[in-house]
Design a protein around this nucleic acid. Structure first.
Ligand SMILES: [Zn+2]
Ligand SMILES: [Zn+2]
Ligand SMILES: [Zn+2]
Ligand SMILES: [Zn+2]
Lengths: 159, 159
DNA sequence: TTGTACTTGATACAAAGTATCATAAGGACA
DNA sequence: TGTCCTTATGATACTTTGTATCAAGTACAA
């Protein structure tokens, strides 16, 4: 009986690192230690981190990271499309749909800080159409929507 | 023959300052020198300015402005809804539709830096709908679309 | 004109992001 | 498995962007 490749479900970290590996190979980019490390930290944080929060986490186990290296690494991962930057909070978060380029919208709860990454056709179509109407050939779309999430509204804290 | 109030078309500066005056009165806010000055500078710049560009402009004729006062003033004008902040470029721009609260989209040309402020129903409806679908009660919407404007595409510079 | 709550200016500081360059190391290839 | 070359890193210094605090000043109502 042939052994199926690997039946154990890969951990989220393993899957994400494999994705990074593949992307690097495809594009002839190097897979280095800081790149792996930043990805791992963003994954285990499970929320957006500022560059300096990330730096502190990395230093706590490596000691040699610097602001410059963190920003370089984030730029790299963003170019691969597996990390996004939240402009309104100056923070960075792991992509939840890292299967190729996509236009993404973020919903941010101002109460609990929860961030949801959406890929809404309708919003993408509407912005694209707006671009056309005004003569712009769009190549990037930043959509960050702030409000109060369902569970925060449920718990009837005023404001 | 009775003299009509003032038939000369008010300058853009006059109109904008009147709008500021009205808003302040309505809301019981003070109309101070730095508030007038920041508004005037943003108006004459006719493009987004960073807080520190604004600071330099103000200092060149007043000398006593500081970063803190510029940021305070910008916060004030944003709360009134007559100045917007562009998150993706960390800059501030005069509102082009200062007639009450509105959800706005910015289109930014990466080639010439031109910024267009749009108020598109379709985009606003689509984001609102997305919020509903995901259970968010939205109260803010940041939409910044980057691309190449018509005139920049017309001049066939490559890239 | 006067009083006073709100705003400003001054100072100091914190957070976010970038430039430069000598050194280190990924990974192709022998 | 080791060599080499290209690219990325680490170290340093710096710039830009944004805030905290508090004494002094002033817009505006009365
Ligand atoms: Zn994504
Ligand atoms: Zn919430
Ligand atoms: Zn506006
Ligand atoms: Zn243009």
């Amino acid at each position: 009986m042939p052994k199926a490749h690997n039946v154990r479900p890969a951990s989220a970290l393993e899957r994400t690192l494999h994705r990074l590996e593949d992307l690097c190979r495809e594009r002839g980019q190097r897979l280095t230690r800081p790149r792996r490390a930043v990805l791992a930290k963003l994954l285990s944080a499970r929320r957006p981190l500022s560059a300096y929060e990330l730096l502190d986490l990395l230093r706590s186990e490596d000691g040699r990271s610097t602001a410059a290296s963190v920003y370089r690494t984030l730029d790299f991962l963003m170019a691969l499309g597996i990390v996004h930057r939240l402009e309104s909070t100056r923070s960075f978060v792991l992509c939840e749909h890292p299967d190729g380029p996509h236009w993404v919208q973020f919903l941010i709860c101002r109460r609990c800080g929860q961030v949801v990454e959406a890929e809404d056709e309708r919003v993408a179509a509407a912005t694209e159409r707006l671009g056309q109407r005004l003569g712009f050939a769009l190549d990037q779309h930043i959509v960050e929507l702030t409000g109060v999430c369902e569970s925060c509204r449920g718990s009837r804290a005023p404001h």
